[in-house]
Amino acid sequence: MKFFYLIFSVILFSSCQNESKKLAGNTVSESEKISEVKKPELDLIKIKKKAEEALAFCKSKKMNTDFCVLIDMSLHSGLSRFIIWDFKEQKISNKYLVGHGCGNNSWSSDESKDNPEFSNKDGSHLSALGKYQLGERGRSDWGIHVKYLMHGLEETNNNALKRFIVFHSWNLMSDKEVYPKGSPEGWGCPTISNNAMRELDPIIQKSKKPLLMWIYN
């Protein structure tokens, strides 16, 4: 009788252990689900509307009507908000991360990843909204040492050249989305990863007409 009681106790103990493991496993699974952050998606309707406006603008200014750059600063900086829009195919041909200005925050931090401020003022260390014409290609001290001058075409960004705001790459920028973290913030220049610039640089150089870069929110 004692023998059977002993066997029953062992079986019961083993069953309890297995059940505990299952419960522990479920608890971990649930906590993982809770910790997951749903990544926002691009607003294609908004992008298409901006692309239509961009095409009309490019036609009126005799700029490149094959493609343009759209940067939606209302998106979190850990998301790919630097968009290459193909006017001919009417679709996104590529997208990348892009950094914005840090303002009074720490340089290279991501403190304003989801709520950046903007300014056209010299010394503000903030990015400026508006349409730009990408200008002369030159040597940069950053990234792959390539930069493009940015000619601000509106009152909101017409100090770009004076502020030394240029388009360049940066070693700290990632090739892939880093959300919920943000991209490192500089002093106002739109910065992309080195590999992204390696892809874009030859395409921009081939452009026979000035290229539009539109930064908006």
Rank of each mutant, 00 (worst) to 15 (best):
F4C: 13
F4S: 15
Y5H: 14
F13Q: 08
S15E: 08
S15T: 15
S20M: 14
S20T: 11
S20E: 09
L23A: 09
A24C: 08
S29P: 02
E30R: 13
I34S: 06
S35Q: 14
E36Q: 12
K38M: 09
K38W: 05
L42Q: 09
D43V: 10
D43M: 07
D43R: 09
I45A: 15
K46D: 10
K50I: 09
A51Q: 01
E52C: 05
E53W: 03
A54P: 00
K62L: 10
M63V: 09
N64Y: 05
N64A: 05
D66Q: 15
C68R: 04
C68F: 12
C68S: 05
I71A: 09
D72C: 09
G78Q: 08
L79W: 07
I83E: 00
I84C: 04
D86R: 02
Q90K: 14
Y96A: 04
S106Q: 12
W107F: 04
D110K: 01
S112A: 13
K113T: 01
N115D: 11
S119L: 09
N120P: 10
K121I: 14
G123Q: 08
H125W: 06
H125Y: 13
S127Q: 04
L129D: 04
L134V: 02
G138T: 06
G138C: 08
S140D: 03
G143I: 01
K147R: 15
Y148K: 02
M150W: 06
M150E: 04
G152M: 07
E155K: 12
E155A: 12
N158C: 11
N158H: 13
A160E: 01
K162G: 04
K162Q: 14
K162H: 10
R163W: 01
F164G: 07
S174R: 04
P180G: 03
K181L: 14
G182S: 03
P184E: 01
W187N: 15
S193M: 06
M197Y: 04
Q205T: 12
N217S: 12
